[in-house]
């Protein structure tokens, strides 16, 4: 790392900018090669990174071997497995370009601090990758768009195996959620392109839509729900609808987004209420949870209507949801 710093300090910005595109094509990040970015995107990112690196070289050391992904960190962690999303998120906006650089342009790990055993080293780098994509997504900075879209395309090309398990934290899921958080029309389109049930990125795309705070995301999820081929898929979509409709998240976005939020919450609630009577067990619990997240003001009244014709079990579940609603609003 010290050698790296000396080089950067020894040359002028102008020189670096001049040679950057040529270097970038051949360089490789942790998640992709620079060549997998379009030329313009690659150049823009390269220029931004080099300027930033000159100004704040130390910031780039921080993404070389984060504590939770180093053996001295993860082996003393509660569950001894590499994870460093906490540290990567903590970098905040200042971490954007260092992370994008590490992901797409120039991954220079601090090898002396990572494991030497190849299998462990691979796990640590995979954890770094997931953590950086997660942290980049949370920043919601459009400068990340080219990298995230390229990663999404790579995920599609690599035919990553679809993991229906909801706890699974595949790279494709993290990338999809990062795209969703960016929330532009381009990202929506990228996610929508994989909404065929047989698509390997289907589950990831659904998860991504859950974080895409747009009214058209709600419509896409409602349509997907109608075509859900099994209970597990149905639950997965219902969960994403709940994430999208979360009343707290729309409140956090501020007054200006309130109308959109209300439309999404209503659309989700309209779609989920009929499912109460058509589902049971784990799937019904998921429907209850997502209705709870949507948290519409008229939910109690609408639940009362459903309850009037419900069997005893459903009545019990509706009463439970009404209790959740009452407690939530009493707490406010």
């Amino acid at each position: 790392m010290m050698k790296q710093k000396v080089i950067f300090l020894a040359v002028t910005l102008g020189t670096l900018v001049a040679i950057a595109p040529a270097l970038a094509v051949e360089s490789a990040g942790l998640a992709m090669t620079a060549a997998q970015l379009g030329p313009a995107d690659r150049a823009a990112l390269q220029h931004a990174v080099m300027a930033d690196r000159l100004a704040r070289p130390a910031a780039y050391d921080l993404v070389a071997a984060a504590r939770g992904c180093r053996p001295d960190g993860w082996k003393v962690a509660r569950n001894p497995t590499p994870v460093c999303s906490r540290e990567m998120r903590a970098l905040g906006p200042a971490g954007l370009l260092p992370m994008l650089s590490a992901l797409a342009l120039d991954w220079q790990p601090d090898a002396s601090r990572l494991s030497s055993a190849p299998e462990l080293r691979s796990k640590e780098e995979q954890a770094m990758l997931v953590a950086m994509v997660d942290a980049v997504g949370i920043l919601r900075d459009t400068r990340a768009r080219p990298v995230l879209l390229a990663l999404w395309k790579l995920a599609a090309d690599r035919r990553e195996v679809q993991l229906p398990i909801e706890r699974a934290n595949s790279v494709s899921r993290v990338v999809a959620e990062a795209l969703g958080r960016l929330g532009g029309a381009v990202e929506l389109q990228a996610l929508q392109a994989h909404l065929r049930a047989e698509d390997p990125l289907y589950n990831a795309a659904i998860a991504g839509l859950g974080w895409c705070k747009r009214t058209d995301s709600a419509q896409l999820l409602v349509s997907a729900l109608a075509g859900a081929k099994d209970d597990a898929t149905q639950r997965w979509i219902v969960a994403a609808m709940g994430t999208l409709a979360s009343s707290w998240s729309w409140q956090a976005l501020g007054k200006v987004r309130e109308p959109d939020g209300l439309r999404v919450r209503q659309r989700v609630t309209d779609a989920l209420l009929p499912l109460l009577a058509r589902t049971q067990g784990e799937t019904r619990e998921r429907v209850v949870a997502s209705l709870q997240l949507a948290d519409l003001p008229d939910l109690p009244a609408r639940l009362a209507t459903v309850r009037a014709t419900a069997d005893a079990t459903l009545q019990h579940d509706i009463d439970d949801l009404l209790g959740r609603y009452a407690r939530a609003h009493a707490a406010r």
């Binding site: 590499p82 994870v83 999303s85 954890a127 990758l129 699974a168 934290n169 899921r173 993290v174």
Partner: peptide
């Protein structure tokens, strides 16, 4: 939080 294996 999430590691490459799972999130929660």
């Amino acid at each position: 939080q999430g590691d490459p294996g799972q999130t929660g």
